[in-house]
Design a protein around this nucleic acid. Structure first.
Length: 726
DNA sequence: GAGTGTACTTCAACCCCGCTGCGGA
DNA sequence: GGTTGAAGTACACTC
């Protein structure tokens, strides 16, 4: 189908044509003929990179231009929200306004009302729904990207509930990878279904075993025995490779090993560019390894890396400077990062229940990364058989069909939160109403029988009533209580909230950081570290030493909670170090964690600390305790001791600069306001830009000579992604 | 004959990912 | 359940 022939607004066609697209891919054409342009719901199940985004753009923009209202585009990852935001920005030239919102930047409501296309993570949109933002009624279209995540154990329920809420109120366009039961999903959503395996870049799949590479069609190629040869072969041909492994340690090890082999194929300028790239990285044990790997044109990629490091690597790989990335599954479902060759070293992974086969769906998503549109005529995805039998792998992952999707609504933690939200934020006022809502879910559609879910719902409701999240009136109608409503808006697990509330009296008696941090670490919303075998004794000792500060009792060795408890102690200790200004590098070393892990712990602790305070405020707080908690929250956010709290409030002053200023004798905002520019510049880490920012903050004129050299105030609009990114 | 280097075998420890709140001059 | 680095072992070689 030609773009010219599309039955859409002329302006839409013009923009698409300007991109150089004149002809639509067959599945795109089929999708657009399905009635989706006339308002019909659609499930589009096609491989990644076969043009789902373009379809959704055309549908969104056409609808907005013709009918007004808003479109919401849901993604599973923050990084994807940024990626889509950048892509959709192009449509602003038609007068539409595009915004992105995730937990990272900007908060709720009203400013979003000014935008037409809103990109959000599913959880963020769920949260917006709970807060009852007024503009929600104007949403005419919901695009759910990666909708197969409805089958994810911990996050699937959120997506399912959002779609249940919006079903009937807005048009729904669900984008999915190929799954086993797309029909079922389409039936539930009362949607047309378009399925296809068509790809713009052909994909060849094969199994490698001891030097023999067998392609799907039976063709055989010979290589040296070690699978490394698959990588070097790709590089030799001027292409890149993406290697998937199942542990961080393996990613790092293979990167270093491959680096030695690949470095021989690099040109002099490439080597220089890579050196430059490596020098941009900060110094910590993991970065050191990364730097070594980079010198050979190879990088590893996993969640231990900071976001900046990840982006740096992704960009350099896209440019072709980095030839090979070894990655854990962070990359399989993340941002768009294709490669000529994809090599899958592992097909099993460790879970709580021991080793399990990685689902077909996931392996196929990894394989789908092979082949770069515009550069490659075809892509190659190769699974390495090491311990598994090659034949079995061929059957399961290459010829086999992906799994069916199953509703995860019944997952207890998720269900608890969702039931609470229905009662406190969505006006569900009786058990009967609750059930009738649940009848519209994918769970009900799929299982037909609601009795076991009903039983669970009953248990949850009892729990909520018993713990005063909700009350019953004389006619047995639900009455939301402030505690319940706030819990739901804070987006925390009711169990976390209960735990907090139960601990308030103890906190009032003896407020202290260690106790509070252990409490936070013990909630189901926190991702705690695990204590390694040889660390266990140390943390147990620490717990006994500080027993008086804990709000929980120390479990016995035989107790099933023992392991978890030590992990919580370890996490609390990390947080304690953080607020006592232990340098990051030392924290990484002491606890053998990576920057990404620390960032994650701090982010979670920050959010939970805020929630703790907000809930405490509901229960006749003592002023001095409240102040104590607020100060602790600030210390946690900035990673400083108490005496620096005043300084870190200043713009561009973090824990390092604040400490430097303090040690140089500038101990209050007053001191700084009165200081001479020259003296401030003497302080380590303080440059002219920082000083300029300080002066602007105080509303003081800069002395003349300096002012001229540093003018520029790129005031960005608040709440947009631009502001966040810069 | 003790010390050192090296190649090899055992052995226990460790094991992917991600989202959510809110408000400041 | 399988990989990995570290500890342990055996053995040859050097001074």
């Amino acid at each position: 189908m030609r773009v010219e022939e599309l039955p859409v607004d002329e302006r839409v066609k013009k923009v698409v044509l300007e991109r150089g697209i004149e002809e639509l891919y067959p599945p795109q054409a089929e999708a657009l003929k399905s009635g989706v342009l006339k308002g019909r719901n659609l499930v589009l199940a096609i491989p990644t990179a076969s043009g789902k985004t373009l379809v959704s753009e055309i549908v969104m923009v056409n609808k907005l231009l013709r009918e007004g209202g808003k479109a919401v585009y849901l993604v599973p990852l923050k990084a994807l929200a940024e990626e889509k935001y950048r892509e959709f920005k192009e449509w602003e030239k038609l007068g539409l306004r595009v915004a992105a919102t995730t937990g990272d930047y900007d908060s709720t409501d009203e400013w979003l009302g000014r935008y037409d296309i809103i990109v959000a993570t599913a959880e963020k949109f769920d949260s917006l729904l709970r807060h009852g933002a007024r503009w929600i009624d104007e949403v005419k279209l919901v695009v759910a990207d990666e909708v197969h995540l409805i089958g994810s154990y911990d996050r699937g329920a959120t997506l399912e509930m959002i779609l249940t809420h919006m079903l009937g109120k807005a048009q729904i366009l669900a984008l999915s990878a190929t799954v086993g039961n797309a029909e079922e999903l389409a039936e539930w959503l009362d949607a047309a279904l378009v399925m296809s395996d068509w790809r713009p870049v052909q994909l060849r799949k094969g199994i490698f075993h001891l030097g023999t590479l067998v392609w799907e069609d039976g063709k055989v190629e010979r290589y040296p025995e070690n699978w490394y040869s698959l990588v070097t072969d790709a590089v030799k041909r001027g292409k890149g490779a993406l290697v998937f492994v199942n542990t961080r340690r393996s990613a790092e090890k293979e990167a270093l090993a491959l680096s030695k082999l690949v470095s021989g194929y690099l040109t002099k300028p490439e080597k220089r560019a890579l050196e430059r790239l490596a020098s941009e990285l900060e110094d910590n044990p993991t970065s050191e390894k990364l730097k070594r790997a980079l010198k050979g044109g190879v990088a590893f990629h996993h969640a231990g890396l900071s976001r900046a490091e990840r982006t740096l690597i992704e960009d350099a790989f896209r440019e072709g400077l980095i030839k090979v990335i070894t990655a854990t599954p962070t990359l399989s479902a993340g941002v768009n990062l294709p490669s000529f060759r994809v090599i899958i070293r592992d097909t099993k992974r460790y879970s709580n229940f021991g080793w399990v086969d990685i689902p077909v769906l996931e392996i196929q998503q990894m394989m789908g990364r092979a082949g770069r549109p515009r550069y490659d005529k075809f892509g190659e995805a190769i699974i390495v058989a090491r311990t598994e039998e090659p034949g079995k792998l061929m059957e399961r992952y290459i010829r086999g069909r992906p799994e069916k999707l199953f509703s995860m609504l019944a997952n207890e933690q998720a269900f608890r939160s969702q039931v609470l939200a229905l009662i406190t934020n969505f006006g569900v006022s009786s058990f009967r109403e609750l059930i009738s809502f649940l009848e519209r879910t994918f769970y009900a559609h799929q299982r037909k029988d609601l009795s076991s879910l009903e039983y669970k719902a009953k248990e949850v409701v009892y729990f909520l009533i018993e713990n005063e999240f909700v009350d019953l009136d004389l006619e047995d109608n639900f009455m939301p209580l402030p505690f319940g409503k706030r819990t739901s808006q804070l987006y925390i697990d009711p169990l976390t909230a209960k735990k907090f509330r139960d601990t308030f009296p103890a906190i009032e008696r003896n407020p202290n950081p260690f106790g509070i941090f252990q409490l936070i670490a013990s909630t189901p919303d926190m991702a705690t570290l695990t204590a390694r075998r040889r660390e266990m004794e140390d943390y147990l000792d620490l717990a006994y030493e500080l027993e008086g500060e804990l709000y929980a009792s120390i479990p016995y060795y035989e107790d099933s909670r023992f392991q978890g408890f030590l992990g919580q102690v370890k996490t609390a200790k990390v947080l304690l170090d953080w607020i006592n200004e232990v340098p990051e590098a030392r924290i990484y070393e002491t606890y053998s964690i990576d920057p990404g892990d620390l960032y994650r712990i701090l982010e979670l602790a920050d959010w939970l600390m805020y929630s703790l305070i907000e809930l405490y405020r509901l229960f006749e707080p003592k002023a001095e305790v409240l102040q104590y908690l607020r100060d602790l929250h600030l210390r946690l956010r900035h990673g400083v001791r108490e005496e620096l709290l005043e300084l870190v409030k200043l713009p561009n002053i973090g824990r390092k600069r604040a400490r430097a200023l303090y040690n140089a004798g500038f101990r209050s905002q007053e001191d700084i306001m009165r200081a001479k520019v020259k003296d401030l510049l003497e302080v380590e880490g303080i440059g002219i830009k920082v000083v300029e920012g300080l002066f602007r903050y105080f509303g003081v004129e800069m002395p003349g000579e300096i002012k001229g050299a540093t003018k520029r105030s790129g005031r960005k609009k608040r709440g947009t992604l631009d502001a966040f990114l810069k």
